[in-house]
Design a protein around this nucleic acid. Sequence first.
DNA 1: GTATAATCGTTACATCTGTAACTAATTTAT
DNA 2: ATAAATTAGTTACAGATGTAACGATTATAC
Lengths: 157, 157
Amino acid sequence: MNGPDMENSELLKLEEFLPYRLSVLSNTVSRGISAAYVDRFGLSIREWRIIAVLGRHPSLSAAEIVKMTAMDKVAVSRAVARLTASGRLERSLSDADKRRSVLVLSKDGKRLFEQISPLAKSYEKRLLKCLGSEDQERLSDILDNLQRRAKALRPPD
Amino acid sequence: MNGPDMENSELLKLEEFLPYRLSVLSNTVSRGISAAYVDRFGLSIREWRIIAVLGRHPSLSAAEIVKMTAMDKVAVSRAVARLTASGRLERSLSDADKRRSVLVLSKDGKRLFEQISPLAKSYEKRLLKCLGSEDQERLSDILDNLQRRAKALRPPD
DNA sequence: GTATAATCGTTACATCTGTAACTAATTTAT
DNA sequence: ATAAATTAGTTACAGATGTAACGATTATAC
């Protein structure tokens, strides 16, 4: 080894580097989604996430949304402000704890969730069509493992 | 179906939605990398990508870097400007085509690449430790397929 | 050869994002 | 009961980002 045709094995090949590949894939997919449906409704991806969470779990506080969306509290605060301003969300204060907000989709917000959900699912379905059903299940498990692991590997918040 | 305990199958469960899971995973991993080594050297992830590409492929133009990094040309232009300013990169103009730049790592840039490469590989190795070797190979194939597919699904640039 | 179109990279502008600082409300400790 | 610490959410600021417009150069069409 270390002769003229060694493999240079210690040097990184970006195109094979898992973090890089995940980032590129995630960006490609996100752009596809925006183009496919989120843009049309004047939503950002983050606003859409909040709609999606509140669509299935009404009456969450901002802090609970933080936990369920992997967004930080500033991002949630801003997205909630925009959604409230555009009439998709209704915000009130908790009686028990006057710091806490109680967030609920408005009629309009619910309609949005019901309109976009099937589009999102259809996109996902088309995306997954390139995999056999066995690979689909395997992928899901792998992603769970990687997520757990990645979380453990990074420094505490 | 459609009774009180229907599965609501047309409504999206964010936590199971592949694009969402990819985004969360990619962000977690990227933060881990930044914290683990990129930050220490005063590099952004994008600057690091350019270092990595030029480390293995010297004398690229900005447009070629665009193709190899999935970054857009503005992002490349800005990252190259910073890397040049900080002495990690040397920029000259092509003789044949005076629009084209010719980019090469400086001595300092090369050293950076050689220092960070093993750290990056080690991070990747630790991340992948949660998967068996069979799953690791499977994952690689799956990501390739998904990337191709996601690219095909989104509107032409 | 000249006009037109395409390419390379940068700049300008508006928006988005992350970090830290902040106010207000609640909890904990003493 | 009061002081200190914690929690919820917002705001302020600096820096990052995406889109569009731009100047400069080269390629193409006629």
